[in-house]
């Protein structure tokens, strides 16, 4: 059994986008803060810290889920995919990212990382979704700029439909 005292800094190692990285966290440190301020992965954004807005969504251990409702110490040894891992190492955008660009599916881009991570996992599970299914998946995200229409189009395009 693992026990970490409230003020004890624990070494946490996670595999982010295929690479094992480590940092230190007290038990109460949110995974979002750990990713951003401990590991320097600023691509994951924080919009509400109470699990509603979806901006911080990452793929954690194979599930697209809120990273603001996880504590870093819970994630020791897990595999996490973040927005930084989507494009090719040379910066070439993947199909989903290209579709977002071509369809105007982002404006300020603050919520975008979370939506990309949800959509990535969603399309793996449901490669040819209907627009209603896309909207249902998107209901777990808040985007204030786009009105969502162009996001739906982009995801549909990325699914090859």
């Amino acid at each position: 059994m693992l026990r970490i005292k409230p003020d004890q800094k624990q070494r946490v190692t996670i595999t982010v986008n295929g690479k094992a990285v480590s940092g230190y966290a007290e038990p109460r440190m949110l995974l979002t803060d750990f990713l951003r301020h401990e590991l320097g992965l600023y691509g994951t954004h924080v919009g509400c810290e109470h699990g509603v807005c979806g901006a911080c969504t990452a793929i954690i251990d194979g599930a697209a889920t809120r990273s603001c409702l996880r504590y870093a110490v819970q994630c020791d040894g897990l595999d996490i995919q973040t927005v930084e891992g989507l494009a090719d190492p040379d910066g070439t955008l993947n199909t989903l990212q290209k579709a977002f660009n071509e369809n105007g599916a982002l404006q300020c881009g603050f919520c975008t990382a979370g939506i990309l991570m949800s959509s990535t996992k969603f399309l793996q599970e449901n490669p040819k979704p209907t627009d209603d299914e896309i909207r249902d998946m998107l209901s777990g995200h808040i985007c204030r700029c786009t009105g969502y229409t162009q996001i739906v189009r982009a995801i549909r395009q990325a699914s090859g439909q």
Binding site: Y42, L93, F100, E102, G104, G109
Partner: peptide
Amino acid sequence: PRKEDAALLTGNARF
């Protein structure tokens, strides 16, 4: 298509 997007889509844009 917007010039801004690539940085935002890859987590490279800084807020």
